[in-house]
Design a protein around this nucleic acid. Structure first.
Length: 569
RNA sequence: GCGCCUAUAGCUCAAUUGGAUAGAGCAACGGACUUCUAAUCCGUAGGUUGCAGGUUCGAGUCCUGCUAGGCGUGCCA
């Protein structure tokens, strides 16, 4: 598609140049030619609104300009163009000769699992940090969404040439993990008769800590009661972090997400890098003392408030290790860094970006996207509210468990990933459990997977009928004359540009939509036309190539999403 | 109060970033299995894109002001 677009681009530019030289187009230079999508086949294969754009500077009616441009295209010299048409307010619709369709199929077959890949990011290293949940509880649904999106984003960036990695920041230092230690301490002592002890303010109420305390007692008995409270809490903190981190890792592995790098906040703090950051900020006069604390002049960067970086008790607020962490990312040589944050980190975005700016790094070096909230919608339409602090929350594991009950483990992961990926990141996502399981028949995931299974089935049948694929050069693709076949090929031709734009715009949801559309063209085709037909073996060979191409794109697309492509269902 | 996000068919969402007649899927109704898998297909229906202005050849998309919801907002992360 891109090749042919370039060719058409060149032809139109040539026509415009000649028109200017002939004095028919009163403009100074040949403009960049925009292409707009053709929604229906009546609009041709490629369309451009260039005449609309030139209307103002040329002081001519758009249709008039379009006519002039078309007049200067010598169609005899360009066999790839079948026809040019002026339509609507002045669009130039380009109808391509069918050879490009067949060429597309050859490209897909030749490229195989590399079809869709491109090289815009070659030589650039990108780090994507996502999930990074506090090690104070199991992963919840929003973390699951972030995991699916981040994982796919890395796949997408790698597909377009970047060298992208997955990184998890472990918040194993600071106030929250202190509360974790205290909470475990309470649960532990409750098991030794102190029933009226309560979880402290800001602590963690969830049952998982009760269970964890029981495990400790079962394994080590009352040994911790002999320690001082401070010592005991710090032991429990470290034990708890290790335990919950392991739990999170297990959930992520189950969900098919493998992080390349795990960075510990505690390690960052202990490295002395935060101290260097503070020194650097002090040197640059970004800091001042007030009310017994040390403040950062956030207002210098356009924010409406300054913020505390060293508390009155002498400890750093999380900003300092966070700034140090990002400087560390920079030190590791990444050309670009992307963070996916949960909805509760809104306020952190501007500040972190400002800190990064204060470190002297480029404004667009760090991009931060919010992965919005997920509402689990119950069968009766009620939304389950989730808050870790109140102990009432839906874990990623619980969700997969629930899905797996009806559709099995593999599909449960597939369905969850698809649902998390099908919506734009910044929209609130309603996860309708009913649609994911009870109505499995109408499920978009199955719809796509079923299309793939049907492709496989056709090849299976072909083998049974002793029909064997021939080399591409021996097959006459001109047998593919049905409009539905051409429409399918056009859709297949779109795939690389969809992958490219999803990657660069970080809009992973376009892939699920695209695959659903592709399946939506394939199923009707399958129902209306037989692929295997011994009466017409030449056409059979050609159609098998088409089916193989569809299969290839489905596999490549699903792979980007981390969703399986079953051969039979 | 201020900042960010969201508002599109009964429901959940798209719309290639300013392009042609705003599209899918659910849910509803009627049809199609001696056929490469009926987890499929075919047909019917659904809209003042939250409201009011503005920018221009052209606005769901951009600017302003409202309305409603979500999140955030100087020593939690």
């Amino acid at each position: 598609m891109d090749e042919i677009k370039n060719e058409v681009n060149g032809i139109l530019k040539g026509a415009i140049r000649t028109a200017i030289e002939a004095g028919e187009l009163p403009i100074n230079e040949v403009p960049i030619i925009p292409f707009s999508p053709t929604k229906t086949p009546e609009h041709g294969d490629i369309a451009t609104p260039i005449a609309l754009g030139l209307a103002k500077s040329a002081k001519l009616a758009p249709t008039q300009i379009a006519e002039i441009i078309v007049k200067y295209v010598n169609q005899d010299e360009h066999p790839s163009i079948r026809n040019l048409e002026i339509a609507g307010p002045g669009f130039i619709n380009v109808y391509l000769s069918h050879t490009w369709l067949y060429h597309t199929l050859r490209t897909i077959i030749d490229s195989g699992n590399a079809y869709g890949r491109s090289e815009i990011g070659t030589g650039k290293r990108v780090l994507i940090e996502f999930v990074s949940a506090n090690p104070t509880g199991p992963l919840n649904i929003v973390s699951g969404r972030a995991a699916a999106v981040g994982d796919t984003l890395v796949n997408l960036l790698n597909a377009v040439g970047y060298e992208a990695i997955r990184e998890y920041y472990i918040n194993d230092a600071g106030g929250q993990v202190e509360r974790l230690g205290e909470s475990i301490d309470v649960r532990y002592r409750q098991l030794f008769g102190e029933a009226d002890l309560e979880i402290p303010e800001g602590g963690y109420q969830g049952d998982y800590l009760r269970e964890f305390a029981e495990t400790i007692v079962a394994e080590e008995g009352d040994t911790y009661l002999k320690l001082s409270q401070d010592k005991r809490i710090s032991e429990f903190r470290d034990k708890g972090i290790a335990h919950l981190l392991k739990l999170q890792k297990t959930s992520l592995e189950r969900f098919g997400v493998h992080f390349d790098v795990w960075t510990s906040e505690k390690t960052i703090r202990d490295s002395g890098k935060p101290d260097q950051i503070i020194d650097m900020f002090r040197e640059k006069k970004y800091l001042y003392e007030a009310e017994g604390a040390t403040w950062f002049r956030m207002t210098d960067f356009g924010d409406d408030k300054d913020c505390v970086v060293i508390r009155t008790n002498g400890e750093y607020t999380y900003f300092v290790p966070d700034a140090a962490y990002h400087y560390d990312k920079y030190d590791r040589g990444f050309d670009k860094v992307i963070n996916l944050f949960g909805p509760d980190h809104q306020g952190h975005i501007t500040r972190l970006k400002n800190f990064v700016k204060a470190l002297g790094l480029a404004d667009d070096w760090l991009d931060i996207d919010i992965i919005q909230q997920v509402n689990l919608v119950d069968s009766d339409g009620t939304r389950l509210d989730m808050s870790k602090r109140q102990g009432q929350f839906y874990t990623l594991d619980a969700l997969i468990d629930e899905l797996a009950e009806t559709v099995g483990e593999q599909f449960a992961v597939d369905v969850a990933r698809y649902f998390f990926l099908m919506r734009a990141n910044n929209t609130h996502l309603d996860f309708i459990i009913e649609l994911a399981i009870t109505q499995a028949n109408e499920n978009p995931v199955f719809y796509i997977q079923y299309a793939h299974a049907r492709c496989c089935s056709i090849f299976h049948q072909a083998t049974e009928q002793q029909i064997h694929l021939k080399p591409l050069n021996d097959i006459s693709l001109e047998e593919l004359t049905e409009p539905s076949e051409h429409e399918l090929i056009r859709k297949l031709a779109d795939f690389p540009s969809i992958v490219l734009s999803s990657a660069t715009e970080r809009e992973a949801h376009r892939i699920p939509h695209y695959l659903h559309e592709l399946a939506g063209l394939f199923h009707p085709y399958y129902n209306q036309h037989r692929v295997l037909d011994t009466e017409n073996i030449q056409r059979t060979y050609a159609r098998l190539i088409l089916v193989q191409s569809v299969q290839t794109v489905l596999v490549n697309g699903l792979k980007l999403l981390g969703i399986s492509a079953p051969e039979s269902m």
